[in-house]
Design a protein around this nucleic acid. Structure first.
Length: 635
RNA sequence: GCCCCCGUAGCUCAGUGGAUAGAGCAGCGGCCUUCUAAGCCGUAGGUCGGAGGUUCGAUCCCUCUCGGGGGCGCCA
């Protein structure tokens, strides 16, 4: 709120200097308002004079002084200093700052936690999408927390967001067949399949399946897959709800096959030349920096023969290849296997087209994937590019070189593929979050255990809740476990590896950062109710009485929230919200320590400070809402 | 071999090309007869892995290099 006003004010001055001919007409970077490190340097600073010195044909300090003179007597700025190599240090008028208390009161918590982007988009965000053959793990928990808060932030920034969960329920899925077979073997006491699923949750699902009335006596694997995955999905949905994560659409992979749309899309790709059944596979070796180093074309007829002789993988259908190497992938991918079954990636072809229907006419897709899927980025872009491929009408940019001639049939095709790939990379943002390591008693705690059991998100929430608040009710324990888990996941940038210290998370003490921010909220609630008891009430119209540095610093911090949200929506760095929350809490504690709120002999000042307390609460509630954690009134 | 991520205080990590690099925890020393001490204040702790380059200015951008984690299936 403050920064854009200051930037506009300075920009005005620069424009005036230019139109008056005091600085030459030239390219100037827009004015930027930066933070100061130390209070001696004022409230904000501006580096424009140093950046623009060359264009202005003046020394940085000269230019700074020119701007400084024009900033006298502005309503926002009390003092301007030229410092160091050419910084403009700005000290704000207290009245300008304190006026924002009333603004915040008008906005309320939800209005404050909002930023209006200049380019609102319709965005489909797919996240979590765990296979329905197991519970949500503590590893996927990071994707859940990140994806959910990202959706909240994008919506707060003015975008239209559709939250989507993709269910890998394809009957062609090897993993799901194995899961179904494992359940079946428990139910019918058959021999257990090799490498089957052994966790306790499999037996729980089997027990539920056994209870199903009208279980056909000749139930086949399809029936078992359908039943057990439905039960698993229900369980995932329940666990995610416990984590305050909800979806607009749970999209079934199999539904794409059932409706025939997969076959239809594959036919379209074949027609465009992005897929074919020629028995060869192109492999590309890239040198450092992405340049093609070597292209090899493998004869697949020979490969098929040797495999057929060895046993598995036989079949007499023609393999259908996605020529993903035309779109920057490092090898062509199989769409239809030799035995006629379609692969997972063939569903992706239909799915990525379909996603643009949610929200209607979506213009951007975000897919949040775990660290083990990083190899997927290239092929997903290739899938989308193949869908977008159109014949190029432009002139070709030169003949095919030695490598390209093994990939493309013509220079025109190469150019068209390039254009399609560029569009695909723009439209689809695949976001990879990095690995989480869980540390307990100083030792790494594995997500998948030797006995086949899985360290689930649900276990983590309950574990934290129970040890942090052993005396509390179960729902209270879940609330605490959820708050702590979400906060811990969100504290670190999604793109960095992190340690999740369970020992720290389970401590209900000042060692735990989530309680630090929540404590500030509870403390304010207590002050407000104490004030109420003695008949003092918040009054934003008295906020001109707020002149103490600690009061002004607190106001400045509160009104940063919209800028913070805009930045997070822009670069997806939502972890910064936890840093901001901790800054706000700390700034409040400083204020609380130095400025007594309830003073019956100074009712106007008390009313102003109570208004500031409420504004702080709105800031905290706003950011808690984005982080998906609760705002306790008492602790 | 190629791709992604990381290397910043004892530990876990923030850090938008700007001035004297920060927080939490751990350490040491203070502050409750007054609004919640789950708090506050003070103190100590650093060749920002290393070397070049771009820049008026680099923890941040580029190149190289060393060290750690992960990924490269007719599995998903």
């Amino acid at each position: 709120m403050i920064r854009p006003i200051l930037a506009a004010r300075l920009q005005q001055v620069v424009d005036a200097l230019r139109s008056e001919g005091l600085i030459p007409e030239a390219e100037y970077a827009p004015v930027e308002i930066i933070d100061t490190k130390s209070p001696e340097h004022g409230d904000f600073a501006c580096n424009f004079a140093m950046i623009a010195a060359k264009s202005a044909q003046k020394s940085p300090r000269e230019l700074a002084e020119l701007i400084q003179n024009r900033l006298q007597n502005t309503p926002e700025i009390e003092a301007v200093e030229v410092a160091g190599p050419g910084f403009l240090n700005l000290k704000l008028r207290p009245s300008f700052v304190s006026g924002f208390v009333a603004t915040v009161h008008q906005l309320g918590a939800s209005g404050l936690a909002r930023a209006q982007t200049s380019q609102p988009q319709k965005i489909n965000v797919e996240f979590v999408s765990v296979n329905p053959n197991g519970p949500i793990t503590v590893g996927s928990g990071r994707g859940a927390a990140f994806g959910d808060t990202l959706c909240r932030v994008l919506a707060a920034a003015g975008h239209t967001v559709h939250r989507e969960y993709y269910i890998n329920d394809g009957v062609n899925s090897e993993q799901m067949r194995l899961f179904a077979a494992s359940v079946q073997s428990y139910v019918e006491e058959l021999p257990f399949p090799e490498k089957g699923y052994r966790g306790d949750y499999v037996q729980e699902v089997a027990a539920q399946v056994r209870e199903i009335e009208n279980r056909p006596s000749n139930a086949d694997l399809n029936w078992y897959q359908s039943m057990s995955q439905d039960l698993m999905i229900e369980r995932q949905r329940h666990d995610l709800q416990m984590f305050e994560v909800r979806f607009d659409t749970w999209f079934s992979e199999q539904s794409l096959h059932d409706s025939g749309i997969v076959d239809q899309r594959l036919a379209e790709l074949a027609k465009k030349g992005a897929a074919d059944t020629d028995p060869h596979r192109v492999m590309v070796k890239f040198a450092k920096g992405g340049k093609i180093q070597e292209v090899t074309v493998q004869d697949q007829q020979a490969a098929a023969k040797t495999e057929a002789e060895e046993g598995p993988g036989e079949g007499d259908e023609e393999t259908l290849w996605l020529r993903s190497t035309k779109f920057g992938d490092d090898m062509d991918r199989v769409l239809r296997r030799r035995d006629g079954r379609l692969t997972y990636i063939s569903s992706d072809v239909a799915y990525h087209q379909d996603k643009f229907n949610r929200p209607e006419n979506a213009d951007h897709l975000i897919t949040v994937l775990g660290p083990d899927h990083h190899g997927y980025i290239g092929r997903l872009h290739a899938v989308l590019a193949a869908l977008k491929l159109e014949e190029s009408t432009q002139e070709t940019s030169g003949e095919l070189d030695e490598h390209e001639s093994k990939i493309y049939r013509s220079a025109a095709e190469r150019d068209a593929c390039r254009i399609a790939l560029e569009q695909a990379q723009k439209a689809l943002n695949v976001v990879i979050f990095q690995i989480v390591r869980f540390v307990k008693d100083g030792q790494p705690a594995p997500m998948r255990k030797r006995d086949g059991n899985i360290y689930s998100l649900r276990d983590l929430i309950l574990e934290i809740g129970k040890s942090a608040a052993p005396e509390s009710s179960e729902s209270e324990q879940i609330r605490i476990g959820r708050d702590v888990a979400r906060y811990f996941y969100l504290m670190r940038s999604h793109e960095t590896h992190m340690d999740f210290d369970i020992d720290l998370a389970t401590k209900q003490s000042d060692e735990n950062p989530v309680f630090y921010v929540q404590y500030a909220h509870a403390r304010i609630a207590s002050v407000l109710s104490k004030a109420d008891e003695v008949g003092l009430h918040a009054d934003p119209s008295q906020s001109h009485l707020l002149t103490d540095n600690r009061e002004l610093a607190l106001i400045r911090k509160i009104v940063e929230l919209p800028e913070e949200i805009a930045r997070c929506a822009h670069d997806l760095g939502v972890h910064r919200l936890t840093t901001w929350a901790q800054d706000l809490a700390r700034t409040y504690h400083h204020f609380y320590d130095g400025c007594r709120v309830i003073q019956t002999d100074q009712p106007e000042l008390s009313a102003a400070r109570l208004a500031l307390c409420e504004a702080t609460q709105m800031g905290l509630q706003g950011v808690f809402g984005l982080l998906g954690i609760s705002a306790p009134e008492r602790m």
